[in-house]
């Protein structure tokens, strides 16, 4: 079961390592972590996705929320299930294969060709769940992949602050 944490933190040095350290030393699993500044200069926003396959993930999820809240640099934490969020992840992939065929798969999946050279084609995928789309390109030779990690906002007019 997945849980998405939206975390507003003070935009200071050391905060990312504090948060990452918290997850590793308490044995919490990070599936992805994305961080960037917000509309307010002194605040950064993290989107952290965790996955817990055990029978009782709620207790772990609650501990993660409480431990995140406890950090002095944390201004706000919200834990949401994926269906409560609008989520996006960006993937860049460098492929080798037939250009026409790659373009066709892009057309079908909503991916986009960014750069074409004689040897490789680089595409971008932007989606809530990029894994399905990545799979569609496995028929080609995948030379390189890079992912941003998921970023999320709560659906509707609710905000974090």
């Amino acid at each position: 079961m997945k849980r998405i944490y939206s975390v507003l933190v003070e935009n200071r040095s050391g905060v990312l390592s504090r948060i990452a350290g918290l997850f590793s030393r308490r044995g919490f699993n990070i599936e992805s972590l994305a961080v960037g500044v917000t509309e307010t200069d002194d605040l950064s926003r993290m989107t952290i996705v965790t996955d817990d396959e055990t029978d009782s993930p709620e207790r772990t999820f609650e501990q993660i929320r409480k431990q995140l809240s406890k950090m002095i640099d944390t201004v706000r934490v919200k834990a949401l299930s994926p269906i409560e969020c609008i989520s996006r992840e960006l993937v860049l992939m460098k492929l080798r294969g037939d250009a026409e065929r790659i373009a066709a798969v892009c057309e079908k999946t909503g991916a986009r060709v960014i750069e074409e050279t004689a040897e490789t084609i680089t595409i971008e995928i932007i989606a809530a769940d990029v894994n399905v789309i990545i799979k569609a390109f496995e028929e080609f030779e995948i030379v390189e992949t890079v992912r941003t990690g998921v970023i999320s906002l709560q659906k509707g007019s609710s905000t974090l602050m």
Partner: peptide
């Protein structure tokens, strides 16, 4: 006083 202690070891 620490919310994170509540529900950690005992429910």
């Amino acid at each position: 006083i620490d919310p994170a202690e509540i529900g950690k070891n005992i429910i």
